[in-house]
């Protein structure tokens, strides 16, 4: 991924910065330009909001054949997490065994290395999730 493409999303990848429609209150991650409900009315009325990173597992899978950047990490757990604030996001579940994960379990976000652009490229950091003890 080009450096600029990764850098642009750092507030989202590091800090789960989403946004909220100031008309209806609906929250989004990643941030949307306009609110899906209020649409045209919400132009210019979206405000930044940092999400807590806490949520529950909505669904998950254990990946055995990874994409090229992740193939040496298999098997790894991927999940759709429903954040407490409403939006759902996709992330890896770490620090547990593949059998430990169940739909509905509470999770919290952690800061981890996602990948890198080869041995001499930049390192991508971002969010993953771990089970809340």
């Amino acid at each position: 991924m080009a450096v600029s493409r990764f850098w642009r999303e750092i507030p989202q990848r590091y800090n789960l910065e989403g946004n909220q429609c100031t008309i209806c209150g609906r929250k989004y991650f990643p941030p949307k330009h306009i609110c899906d409900s209020c649409r045209r009315e919400s132009i210019g009325k979206m405000k930044k909001v940092k999400l807590s990173g806490k949520g529950r597992i909505y669904s998950y899978t254990v990946i055995h054949t990874g994409s090229s950047m992740f193939n040496l990490q298999t098997p790894y757990i991927m999940a759709i997490v429903e954040l407490n604030e409403g939006p759902r996001i996709t992330g890896q579940i770490v620090d547990c065994e593949t059998n430990d994960v169940k739909i509905g379990m509470p999770v919290e976000s952690v800061f981890r290395k996602i990948g890198e652009d080869g041995k001499n490229g930049t390192i991508y950091y971002g969010y993953k999730f771990r089970l809340v003890k």
Partner: peptide, 8 residues
């Protein structure tokens, strides 16, 4: 772990 380093 494989996804940890001094930054994380």
């Amino acid at each position: 772990g494989p996804d940890e380093d001094v930054a994380t």
